[in-house]
């Protein structure tokens, strides 16, 4: 069964292949540097071709398949256009378990969470809580606010830095894929996992600090 939504020979809609991945749905290789405007264009082009109106006169079967193809296409587009979702999706395709329930190897799990970052996250959360509490009592602590504003700038820039590091990893990944360099591939995968782990903490902090400052 092919990975294309339409038959090459007759142009008719096909059922989605059960093991198709989101990259293949757009005819893309499993690379992370994606031309987003090209992606958008293919999304609209394919959506139009799969539109229910086109199938108003078609057989039940074809209507069904076109719906299935449309929903696959929508999921694929939503995932691929977001840089983080796309990276997480690729890692999953490549066999990385991101939501590790319980890792067999305790040591490996610990190294996923850098201790200094945890301390920082914890401390900042304490400050945020303190700020919310003083606020509740109708007071304002200017020093605390200043600290938080500083933390805000700091974490925003950490977030930006991690995004640009991620893009570097995408490129490394693409090269390793082209060269079929298994060692480099798995090294890059590990680096992406570590980066995303760290990024999740930073993202939470940015969100919480924003909330506290805006409140």
């Amino acid at each position: 069964m092919g990975t294309k939504p339409f038959c090459d020979a007759c142009g008719k809609v096909q059922p989605p292949s059960p093991d198709i991945d989101y990259f293949a749905a757009f005819g893309l290789p499993r690379k992370l540097n994606i031309d987003l405007s090209a992606l958008e264009r293919s999304f609209y082009r394919l959506s139009r071709k799969l539109h229910p109106d086109v199938y108003a006169q078609a057989t039940q079967q074809e209507q069904q398949w076109s719906l299935e193809q449309t929903s696959l296409l929508n999921d694929a587009y939503r995932t691929l256009k977001n840089s983080i979702a796309r990276t997480e999706y690729l890692l999953k395709l490549e066999g990385v378990v991101l939501e590790a329930g319980k890792s067999e190897d305790g040591a490996a799990k610990e190294s996923r969470v850098p201790a200094d970052l945890l301390e920082e996250v914890f401390e900042l959360n304490m400050q945020l809580e303190e700020m919310r509490m003083t606020r509740k009592m109708g007071e304002d602590d200017p020093q605390l606010r200043k600290d938080l504003e500083k933390a805000h700038i700091d974490f925003e820039s950490q977030l930006a830095a991690s995004d640009s590091n991620l893009q570097d990893l995408w490129t490394l990944w693409g090269t390793a894929l082209d060269n079929e360099d298994t060692a480099r591939k798995s090294e890059t995968k590990d680096q992406m996992v570590a980066l995303l782990d760290r990024r999740r903490y930073i993202r939470n902090l940015v969100r919480d600090v924003n909330e506290a400052l805006e409140a």
Binding site: A100, R112, V113, L118, E119, V121, F122, R200
Partner: peptide
Amino acid sequence: GLVGAPECGDVMR
């Protein structure tokens, strides 16, 4: 013990 869940970014002491 200070630990974190990388899945969601939560922390616990």
